[in-house]
């Protein structure tokens, strides 16, 4: 039934476009956006929002396929072997493209040689927070507290080897203090522990914590160059210019995809992301819509490798 609908849709699209003249970079449909995580998660929702708009821009049926498993590595490896003609795209993030190559000795893909960047679709900030009952009011007070209470200086992150984990280490390293890391099984358990006072410091993406600020927890700082919320200053404003970093979701394709095809996809994606209703929904998820060119995406990947790899290596973290 579903495939029938798809075919009717495809046929209708082809019929409509038949008169549009020969396109230099025709992409054979239907186009797949592979999300290497289960349906319903953050990157899945964004992929579905974009897929809806790409349909019209590319004149093809665009479907989202979930290939979850092994923290996204199964889906990533799957797309590596798919046709490089623009018909299969993949949603990736720093965990897959920056952290995994450092912490896995045998990784089935190489982010730099197996894939070509298309566009960064959204960015999200990290933040550091404390329970609302805590007396700590800003980052300086937090650092002082850590120095005075080395036995209680624990920080929680949503997962071991996640970017918030390494962001916590970045804070400790920059401030010259030591914190013990405890990973939780996701953002929900972390915020529960934080509200209940089971752990004194939490580090996570801003959108995972913003709903509880300021009634249940206090967000001390966000990690972007500009404020995310008018009442929460950035680390930079609080005198820590080195503490900066954002996470992102980006679209990539298999490496051998022709340049003109990538350009066409990138333009369509950037346009989709900037459509007012899509942009509004992405903001509603707590992140910022971006929509870059392939070159800008490559620059983001490179900059983040330079930023995070030394911290990850220094932590000695290994997944195997």
């Amino acid at each position: 039934m579903r495939s029938l609908c798809t075919w009717i849709l495809v046929a209708a699209m082809v019929g409509l476009l038949g008169t549009a003249g020969p396109e230099a970079q025709e992409i054979k449909g239907p186009i797949k956006i592979v999300v290497p995580y289960p349906a319903g998660g953050g990157s899945d929702v964004v992929a579905r929002l974009i897929a809806d708009k790409l349909k019209d821009a590319l004149g093809q049926a665009v479907i989202v396929e979930n290939k979850p498993g092994a923290g996204g590595r199964i889906g990533t490896e799957y797309v590596k072997g798919q046709p490089a003609d623009g018909s299969v795209m993949l949603v990736v993030n720093p965990a897959l493209f920056v952290v995994a190559p450092v912490v896995f000795s045998k990784l089935a893909y190489d982010p730099e040689t197996d894939f070509a960047p298309v566009s960064v679709i959204q960015q999200y900030q990290f933040c550091v927070s404390v329970p609302a009952a805590s007396t700590i009011g800003d980052v300086k007070a937090l650092i002082d507290w850590i120095k005075k209470n080395p036995n209680q200086a624990n920080f929680g992150s949503p997962a071991a080897g996640s970017l918030p984990h390494f962001f916590g280490l970045m804070i400790a390293k920059t401030a010259g203090v030591e914190m013990v890391h405890s990973s939780y099984n996701g953002s929900g358990p972390l915020v529960t522990a934080l509200i209940g006072g089971q752990i004194p410091i939490g580090v996570d993406a801003y959108d995972a914590q913003s709903a509880y600020h300021p009634d249940k927890i206090r967000i001390l700082a966000t990690a972007g160059t500009a404020r995310k919320s008018s009442d929460i200053p950035t680390f930079i404003e609080q005198g820590f210019p080195e503490i900066e970093g954002v996470g992102w979701n980006a679209i990539v394709v298999p490496a051998k995809t022709p340049k003109p095809v990538i350009a066409k996809l990138s333009a369509a994606i950037a346009q989709a992301v900037r459509t007012p209703d899509v942009a509004e929904k992405i903001r509603g998820l707590g992140s910022d819509p971006v929509g870059t060119t392939p070159e800008e995406a490559a620059a983001v990947f490179k900059k983040d490798r330079e930023r995070w790899v030394p911290i990850i290596k220094a932590s000695g973290f290994k997944a195997e």
Partner: peptide, 9 residues
């Protein structure tokens, strides 16, 4: 599977 505490497989 993946150890939650250390992230090791």
């Amino acid at each position: 599977g993946t150890d939650v505490t250390s992230g090791a497989h």
